[in-house]
């Protein structure tokens, strides 16, 4: 309890800090927006090969990434080099996640234009509603001269972000997610990067032949109207709006409903699944994985699981807004 009081005290300090007016002039904001737009465009347009490190709490993982952009369609491949082998390959409309140890391929197909990418560069100015956008210092990362942009949240419902991008191309070299105490909750950093020509064979799965005999878990995503089934949100999380609403499968067979809400930087998913047919016991409560929080509760004989790259209170608040009314 005493710890809680301390935690609250720290939380309030965070609020006070967040409320101090940012020193950024509007010119700085405009500059920062230009850089942010450049980052989104680079992510969409560039081909590159590199190695990056992902850090979260005491977890540090190195991954290899290759991306080919071009008229033949963009293909991107990520391979995690530490720990359990994992490979993710995205083609124009499909993401495949290869897990050699469990001999599983998880497949997800995009059903509408809104799905990937989550946001278009022309919507960058919308971010200014929830974040103060400003420029940071110039630093050198993995051999590139980088410019920084900061997204400071205007309330405590979301995290802050600091992004470093190559001044010449806009390629994102480092990204930090920061909580309101100023702690880094997760970080991506490129340690090596080559922008430009990437041979196509680099983005082909290394598991192609073996995976033919693996179990395929197809998400079978389909558009849905969960309100018609009786599921609604009793309120809204300020700044977050509904991005998509689907039914899908989780893992091997569990059918679930999924609603996704986003403020342009962060997203929160609400999963609703019937209690019947669950193999594991339901443990209501909150769990944390880096920048993610997962909150589970029971509503009308269903399990509601809210997953969000947002502070615990936001994820929990959204979970508590889920309501069921028997359809007429």
């Amino acid at each position: 309890m005493r710890l809680r009081a301390l935690g609250l005290a720290l939380a309030f300090c965070g609020v006070c800090e967040a409320q101090t007016p940012a020193p950024t002039a509007s010119q700085g904001t405009a500059d920062a927006m230009v850089l942010l737009r450049k980052i989104y465009q680079a992510t969409e347009k560039l081909s590159y090969s590199g190695t990056f490190v992902y850090q979260q709490a005491d977890r540090t993982e190195t991954s290899r990434i290759d991306r080919v952009a071009g008229p033949g369609g963009d293909i991107e491949r990520v391979e995690v080099l530490d720990g359990m082998p994992r490979e993710i390959v995205r083609t124009r409309d499909t993401v495949r996640c290869y897990l050699p140890e469990s001999q599983t391929v998880k497949v997800e197909r995009r059903i509408d234009q809104r799905a990937f990418p989550g946001m278009l560069p022309e919507h960058v100015s919308d971010l200014a509603r929830n974040y103060t956008i400003s420029r940071g210092e110039r630093v050198r990362i993995a051999g590139y001269d980088c410019e920084a942009v900061l997204l400071t949240p205007k309330d405590d419902l979301r995290y802050g972000y600091k992004l470093w991008a190559d001044a010449a191309t806009g390629m994102l070299l480092k990204a930090r997610t920061i909580n309101r105490k100023g702690d880094v909750v997760e970080q991506f950093t490129f340690t090596q990067l080559a922008i430009g020509n990437v041979p196509r064979e680099r983005v082909r799965t290394r598991n192609g032949n073996a995976a033919q005999s693996w179990r395929v878990e197809d998400a079978a995503v389909a558009p849905a109207n969960l309100a018609r089934a009786g599921w609604t949100m009793g309120g809204e999380l300020p700044g977050f709006r509904k991005v998509t609403e689907v039914t899908r499968r989780l893992g091997e067979a569990r059918p679930v409903g999924q609603m996704v809400f986003s403020d342009g930087m962060a997203a929160v998913s609400v999963f609703i699944e019937p209690m019947a047919g669950r193999s594991e016991a339901v443990r209501p409560g909150l769990s944390s994985l880096g920048a993610f929080h997962i909150y589970t509760r029971e509503v009308a004989n269903h399990i509601v699981t809210v997953v969000g790259e947002a502070p615990a209170a936001s994820v929990q608040r959204m979970a508590n807004q889920v309501e069921f009314r028997r359809p007429q």
Partner: peptide, 26 residues
């Protein structure tokens, strides 16, 4: 859940597939 969520995360358009490593943690 994380993988199902990641498909709709705005982080994909900011940093591409790199963001997916968060969701296939060992």
């Amino acid at each position: 859940y994380l993988l199902a969520h990641q498909g709709y995360s705005p982080r994909n358009s900011l940093q591409g597939m790199a963001a997916y490593v968060r969701t296939v943690s060992s």
